[in-house]
Write a protein that binds this DNA or RNA. Sequence first.
DNA 1: CTTCTTGCAAATCATTTGCAGGGCG
DNA 2: CGCCCTGCAAATGATTTGCAAGAAG
Lengths: 140, 140
Amino acid sequence: MTDYSDKLKSAGLKVTLPRLRILEILGRHPNRHHTAEDIYRLLLQNGEDIGVATIYRVLTQCEQAGLVARLQTEGPAMFELNRENHHDHFVCTRCGLVEEFHDGIIEERQRKIAARAGYEIVDHSMVLYGICADCRRQLK
Amino acid sequence: MTDYSDKLKSAGLKVTLPRLRILEILGRHPNRHHTAEDIYRLLLQNGEDIGVATIYRVLTQCEQAGLVARLQTEGPAMFELNRENHHDHFVCTRCGLVEEFHDGIIEERQRKIAARAGYEIVDHSMVLYGICADCRRQLK
DNA sequence: CTTCTTGCAAATCATTTGCAGGGCG
DNA sequence: CGCCCTGCAAATGATTTGCAAGAAG
């Protein structure tokens, strides 16, 4: 089990129950993506009633501290633990499944495009929307 | 000057003043991207007071009809005339500049990734965020 | 005429913020 | 004990919707 206390401390954030719980939720399924509402409901199921405002605050702070990554798609933002290995996302428009992928060639091309145009890339977001393998099977 | 009446008709939409005006705004600088509010203000300057609700409605309808493309970034959505030539976007986080680019290699890789995972891609969004050439110059 | 559109205000959704009370260090 | 944090409610920003009045075909 990861030690979120240390991570919070080294980010200069006080170690509090809400913060620990939220990070634990995110760490439970390291490649799952949750909305703030999701997290609120999951915490409620554990008997922890933490306001959504706090959840948004904690997530935003942790994002700035590099502990959490935010994924903007259509609809509410989704959050995941930041695992240092950069990746992009595929989102199934039928069932909501989110999967990750990484492609070195795409990354390299992005750098080339930026260099050619004189941009300094700070960040990028790439989301593929479609029907996942499971849903395609069900649709047949 | 493009004939937006015909485009609206073949999309099954009635030809109305608000629709024509909105498409004209978008067509004026074919590679510019506007928010609904932008369009509202531009129309006001021309003396046309069209409510934002209408603008959103028109844009959404035209998007579904394939006449308009919506670009989701941080902040409000931006709209542009749909010009058939698919492209992705670079957004300057300092001045808001939006530029377009296209890269066949990236597109091809996206298809490969989808094929390997069994996805059927319906759409994708890719936005590079950074500092544009002009802003970099000014910052020096 | 009938149906699709618009306008306006009210509703909604996601997210943020102000402020008073609590808790960590 | 002081400052950071949380809770709650109210504020905000973007977008949508209901409904009555107006135009398009």
